[in-house]
Simulated assay, not measured.
Amino acid sequence: MNPQIVTFLIKCPDKKGIISALTGFFFKEGFNIISAQQYTNSLEGKFFMRIRLTSDDSVAISKNQLENKFSDLAKSYQITWKVDYGSKKQKVAILVSHTSHNLYDLLYRHREGELNCDVRMVISNHQKLKSVADMFGVPFHYAPVTAETKSEQENELTRLLDSHKIDLIVMARYMQILSAGFIDRYQGKIINIHHSFLPAFQGANPYKRAYERGVKLIGATAHYATKDLDEGPIIEQGVERVTHECTPASLKKIGADIETLVLAKAVNFHLNNQVIVDGNKAIVFPETGE
C-alpha cells in the first residue's frame, strides 16, 4: 500500500529561519519530507514553498490536529497556506463552445491516465460537440445562452457545478464572457485557454490580428479567469515561430497544437498542487518526478 502523500502550499513574508521552522515542524510531527521546493522573491520580500510529505502508521496526528498546530505556526510567520491530502481526485467540468481540439485532447489524456482527475461533465452553449463527449463516455450538458438569458444560464451552470461538487472548471475555448459574480463564486478554480501569447492580442480573433500585424511568433496562454478579461494569473504559455507566408488559417492550425499542450500542462499543474497564486501572478513549481 502506498503511503499517503500530503502537500502544503505556503506563502508568507520572507523571514530568516522560515525554512528551518517549517521543516522542523513537520519533522517533529513525524512526517518524512519527500520534496521541498522554495522560491524567494527578493524584490518583494516574499517566500513561497511547496512541500510534500509522507505519513505512515507511526504518525498518530489527525488532519484536524495537524491543521490546528500548523495554524499556530502560520500566525507566527504570517503564512497563507493550503493543504491537500491526496485522498481524492479533483472533480473537473469542461466548458466548450464550437472548437473541438482542446476538448478532444483533454478527454484523451484523461482516458489514458495522464490527468489525475475525474472529468464529471462537458458543458456547452452549443450541441455541436456532444458526439465528442459521448465518444469518451462523459456526460454532456447543453446550456444555450443569449444576451437576454445570460443570468439564467449561469444559474443553471452553477446548479450543475455545485450539485456535482466540481473542484475545477476548464474553459476549453468556451466563447462566452463569464460574469463577475460567477467568477467570484469559483475564484481560483477556473482555467481559461487564450489563443494568443498574452498580453498580446487580448479578446477576439487573435490569429487574424496576428496576421495583420505580421508577427514572427504566435502562442497560447493558460490562465486563471478573473473579472478582467484575459488578464488573470498566467499558469503556462507556449510559442511557435511563424513566417510572412502564413495565412490566418495556417496560424490558426499551428496555434491549435500550441493550445492543447499549454492547456493540458496548466490543468496538470493545478491538479498536482504546483501553483501558488500571489496577486495577479502564478508561482508554478516544476515537476519533481512525481
Rank of each mutant, 00 (worst) to 15 (best):
Q187R: 13
S62V: 10
P3K: 03
S71N: 10
C12P: 00
A225Q: 03
L22E: 10
N102C: 10
T146D: 10
I254H: 11
I177M: 03
G232Y: 02
G45K: 15
F48S: 15
L129Q: 02
N280W: 01
E156D: 05
L157V: 07
Y224H: 00
A36S: 12
M171L: 03
E290M: 12
N125M: 07
Y77S: 06
Y104C: 10
E245G: 14
H101T: 01
L161F: 01
V145K: 04
I10E: 01
Q4L: 01
T243Q: 15
L271A: 07
I10H: 12
V242P: 08
S87V: 15
P248M: 10
V83F: 06
I94P: 06
F140Q: 03
H110E: 15
Y224P: 08
T40K: 14
V145C: 09
A220P: 12
P233M: 08
A60S: 04
T288D: 14
Q176G: 13
Y207T: 09
F8C: 12
E156M: 07
K128C: 02
M121H: 09
E152C: 06
Q187E: 04
Q4W: 09
L263T: 00
G214N: 11
T146E: 04
W81F: 10
I18N: 05
E152I: 10
N273R: 13
V83Q: 00
N68R: 15
W81M: 00
P286D: 11
V145F: 07
S58L: 12
D57G: 12
Q38M: 15
V275T: 01
R209F: 00
F285C: 05
N192P: 01
M1A: 15
A143H: 01
I258V: 12
I18H: 15
L261T: 14
G214V: 06
M1V: 15
Q202K: 14
Q176Y: 00
T54E: 13
S87Y: 15
G17W: 08
M1F: 09
Q65T: 08
I183W: 06
R209Y: 08
A172I: 01
N125R: 13
A93L: 04
C117M: 04
P13N: 05
I283Y: 09
L106Q: 06
A133G: 06
L261W: 10
R241L: 11
V83K: 02
I183L: 07
E154P: 04
T54V: 14
I18W: 14
K227V: 06
Y211G: 03
V122G: 08
